[in-house]
Write a protein that binds this DNA or RNA. Structure first.
Length: 609
RNA sequence: AGGGGAUUAGUGUAACGGUAGCACGACUGAUUCUGGUUCAGUUAGUACAGGUUCAAAUCCUGUAUCCCCUGCCA
């Protein structure tokens, strides 16, 4: 992953903390940058979404910047919620983003479940130190005795039971002697704390569940708060970055590590003190018009509101990839939005802007007609055989001379886009209209001499034109006798009717009509459901777009240009598109996804009327 | 209600007691064989009220608003 930070770029607060730690030698020799260790700890219970991308980029980027190490750690502490099928998807997405846990800055793949024995041993230690006890209250009873923000909780009747009793019960919980939910191991902290996390939190629950990694070896599973900081400690994480909602958990994060370290040290029967990472919270990424709630994403897939986790309208990383987004664009976006503790919402346009910025430089240009209307050049015979094909040279990428040129066939009958012709065109419409002249990009200049419409629908079915043989390649014609050069306002794209390849094009629009689809409005009716704000027009499938013939081969070969093998193009004047996996080029089936439109100032002008 | 956080142009983000800057958007104009790109310019901000100071976005006090917390989820 390349970091765009320049040495003098302003640093966010986490980078500043790290700088200070390096300077002070908090984690090693003062000045040694390589001590920095970060991690990304997903729970394998769903697909990663764009919000996770920020965390991945942050953690990996910080490790890479300092020549430190980055772990990918699956937080698989709850077997009833997690599925191994998500693991591969998560790994694929993280690798695609460029955070290579096995690369130079990587420290490998880890599993929380590999630490279960160590966690258990530490729990026993806490019981022996009188800092934890086995509680036999039911879930309901625990809830009833927890208290409220102003009323302290009631101590569990088991709170002060003898250490030996807890030790015995905890061992039997582990062995599976007790039913799910019948007992828990709780930390003995403070039932009167205004921070609920400190009111004797549960460390272990009894769960007779098969675990993908440890099988049936364990009948108790650790809770997040107990497990997480210790996982960080085992791995030697220096800066444990998490989101804002864990601020309340930080006292507990620290309490557990300090509890283990209590009475440890030289000569202690408990052994040496353990590593104490620093938890730092930052605001998670939020975007307008996007749904990030995990349970809701699951619901969208389960209830088939979308075609799957990688439906290009989804907010998952897989979806953005299938949509044609590049990892580079997502990274540069994550870098640009910054890292703060302010719970901001970023306009989705910012992501699109990062995408266009990248694709403009790299995507080869092609011509494609989404809504084809036939255009006939009536004087084509003036230039020779009326059946002839002229091969015109077209620039592949004006932003990149090394991309070269290609030949595009031009014939008497072409297709142009319906949007590029108007019968009654306003003055500001620079495209084709009766009596008006336009440039056919890389082709010829044509003047509209007439058109035909369908009697019933009134739709234009055919456009008649004459061409100027002196404008070959789209060049301006020579000056007239007085030295005036004829000009043309508009340039439109086209494909040769005889040569065009048919393609399916999928046009995506935002999935949600509201800025914050995750949020239930204050005045929402009783039967409010988040799917009610879905955009019914989020997908438009064009079955018979006409694309320039080379695109057939391109769909097969052009992916080689891209690190992830996904072929991407700019369809001139329309937008950025990529080849969808549904494409079967050898069978002549082409499917393109619209990644993003080009900016369209005409739409803006037309919209204003 | 108790606790934990936050608040700088429309949006996002710098400035760490010393000239409030940058990016995106919006708006003008120029260039252009993409109404794209690029370039130039314009626009607009320290939540509020006090206090400390020669000097406050920054320190202090109070107020307002928003977010998070009462799972045997993470």
């Amino acid at each position: 992953m390349t970091t765009v930070e320049s040495p003098n770029a302003p640093k966010h607060f986490i980078a500043q903390i790290i700088d200070a730690d390096i300077a002070s030698g908090k984690w090693g020799a003062p000045g040694d940058q390589s001590v920095v260790r970060t991690r990304f700890p997903p729970e394998p219970n769903g697909y990663l979404h764009i919000g996770h991308a920020k965390s991945i980029c942050l953690n990996y980027g910080l490790a890479e910047l300092h020549g430190g190490k980055f772990f990918l750690r699956f937080d698989d502490t709850n077997p009833v919620k997690e599925e191994i099928e998500y693991v591969e998807a998560i790994k694929r997405d993280i690798k695609w983003l460029g955070a290579d846990w096995d690369g130079a800055s990587g420290a490998g793949l880890r599993w929380a479940s590999n630490y279960f024995q160590q966690l258990y041993d530490w729990a026993v230690e806490l019981i022996e130190k009188g800092l934890a006890y086995v509680c036999e209250l039911s879930g309901e009873e625990v809830r009833a005795t927890r208290g409220t923000p102003t009323v302290p909780g009631k101590a569990s009747p088991y709170r002060d039971r003898p250490v030996a009793e807890s030790l015995d019960l905890f061992a039997r919980m582990k062995a599976g002697e007790f039913a799910d939910g019948s007992k828990t191991l709780r930390a003995k902290i403070d039932m009167a704390s205004p921070n609920f996390n400190m009111r004797d939190p549960v460390m272990y629950r009894v769960l007779h569940a098969h675990h993908h990694n440890t099988g049936d070896a364990w009948c108790v599973y650790p809770m997040y708060d107990w497990a997480h900081g210790l996982e960080d400690s085992i791995e030697g994480i220096t800066h444990s970055l998490c989101t804002l909602e864990f601020e309340d958990h930080r006292p507990l994060y620290n309490w557990f590590i300090e509890a283990i370290n209590k009475d440890r040290g030289p000569g202690s029967k408990w052994g040496k003190t353990i590593h104490h990472p620093q938890q730092i919270e930052f605001a998670k990424l939020r975007l307008t018009h996007i749904m990030l709630g995990k349970r809701r994403l699951v619901e969208l897939v389960r209830d088939k509101h979308v075609r799957g986790w990688d439906d290009p309208r989804m907010s998952t990383i897989s979806a953005f990839r299938r949509r044609g987004y590049t990892a580079e664009a997502i990274r540069s976006f994550c870098d640009a939005v910054g890292v703060t503790k302010f719970d901001s919402v970023i306009d989705f346009g910012r992501l699109e802007e990062a995408l266009r910025d990248d694709l403009n430089k790299r995507a080869p240009r092609r011509m494609a007609v989404l809504k084809p209307v036939k255009l006939v050049i009536e004087n084509w015979a003036d230039g020779g055989d009326a059946e002839r094909t002229e091969w015109m040279e077209a620039v592949n990428n004006p932003e990149d001379a090394s991309a070269g040129t290609r030949k595009v066939p031009f014939t008497r009958e072409l297709y142009i886009d319906a949007d590029d012709f108007m019968v009654d065109a306003p003055k500001k419409f620079f495209r084709l209209a009766p009596g008006r002249e336009v440039r056919l990009r890389y082709g010829y200049w044509v003047t509209c001499t007439g058109y035909e419409t369908d009697e019933k629908s009134g739709e234009v079915t055919l456009i008649r034109c004459t061409y100027d043989p002196q404008t070959r390649g789209g060049e301006s014609p020579p000056a007239d006798a007085e030295g005036h050069v004829r000009k043309v306002k508009g340039t439109i794209h086209w494909v040769s009717a005889a040569h065009a390849a048919r393609a399916e094009v999928r046009l995506f629009d935002r999935l949600w009509t509201v800025e914050e689809p995750d949020r239930k409005p204050k005045d929402a009716p009783a039967d409010w459901h988040f799917t009610q704000t879905m955009n019914p027009d989020s997908l438009e499938v064009i079955a018979d777009a006409m694309v320039e013939p080379a695109l057939g081969e391109d769909a097969r070969d052009a992916g080689a240009q891209w690190a992830d093998g996904i072929a991407r193009f700019q369809f001139e004047r329309i937008g950025y598109f990529c080849v969808d996996p549904d494409t079967d080029a050898s069978a002549g089936k082409l499917v393109f996804n619209r990644t993003a439109t080009l900016k369209d100032t005409w739409a803006k002008v037309a919209g204003k009327g």
